[in-house]
């Protein structure tokens, strides 16, 4: 028997909400992933319309978050889930709030895209945005994949990748700050890029958080607030 089959309960009324919950989460994940991709695109290509599309999606994401939370609350109240069912519900409620925050961060990037489209391009930083953006996008995709397949190993890889993103973010920051000191006229435009990088870095953190929830769901171990090495160590036990 596979422990992670959530629609094998004797009660059909229990299978259904668990299954629909997971589907809603995946739908929300898909939406947010699209938001991140579009936001990056709008920033890199100074595309205001695309940026507006990202901002318009926010409402839908927020509604899904509330829908999923309501569904989880109902399952907790009516079914008193235990073991893997309980962990699924807990992991889903936590993952949706991270997804919603990722949506917020991509909206920030989209707004920066709109401003840069109006004020003119930043003289620096696009290479870094593209690079870190791609990285973060992959992380988000992987972490959602890991959730869909209950793959703790992949979730751990996402956590490891987040460390690289943090490093890249710090080095990009240093070079942009140096550039601003050399050319103070570009400060306002470069700052927009810096805020976007900051948002990307935060998206990476949220993707990692979701990965940690996947590990909790699959392995039943709480791996928050520890280093990747410690995570590996804990999972071996």
């Amino acid at each position: 028997m596979d422990r992670m089959h959530f629609c094998e309960h004797s009660s059909y009324q229990f299978n259904q909400p668990l299954e629909s919950n997971r589907n809603n989460l995946m739908e929300m994940g898909g939406l947010v992933e699209k938001q991140v991709v579009d936001a990056l695109q709008s920033l890199l290509q100074a595309d205001s319309d695309l940026a507006q599309k990202v901002l318009d999606t926010e409402d839908k994401v927020d509604k899904l978050e509330m829908l999923i939370d309501e569904e989880c609350t109902r399952v907790l109240a009516l079914r008193q889930p235990a073991a893997s069912d309980l962990r699924l519900i807990i992991a889903v409620t936590k993952a949706v709030s991270d997804l919603e925050r990722i949506g917020d961060e991509s909206a920030k990037i989209a707004r920066m895209g709109q401003q840069l489209a109006e004020e003119g391009e930043s003289p620096r930083g696009y290479v870094e945005v593209r690079h870190i953006g791609n990285h973060v996008r992959n992380m988000l995709r992987d972490t959602l994949d890991a959730f869909a397949r209950f793959d703790a190993k992949k979730a751990l890889e996402v956590a490891a990748e987040d460390n690289e993103v943090d490093l890249e973010y710090r080095s990009a920051m240093r070079s942009l700050v140096t550039f601003m000191m050399e050319d103070p006229r570009a400060i306002s435009r470069v700052l927009n890029i810096i805020w976007s990088l900051r948002a990307l870095e935060r998206i990476g953190d949220h993707a990692r958080n979701i990965g940690e929830q996947v590990i909790y769901l699959v392995e039943g171990k709480d791996v928050r607030h520890i280093s990747v090495d410690e995570m590996q160590e804990k999972l071996k036990k």
Binding site: H9, S10, D85, L86
Partner: peptide, 19 residues
């Protein structure tokens, strides 16, 4: 037992997969 049971049968029972 109720958050992370070690054996699959325990898991199946307390999550209502049979019994």
């Amino acid at each position: 037992v109720f958050t992370k049971p070690e054996h699959d049968l325990t898991e199946a029972y307390i999550t209502g997969r049979f019994g």
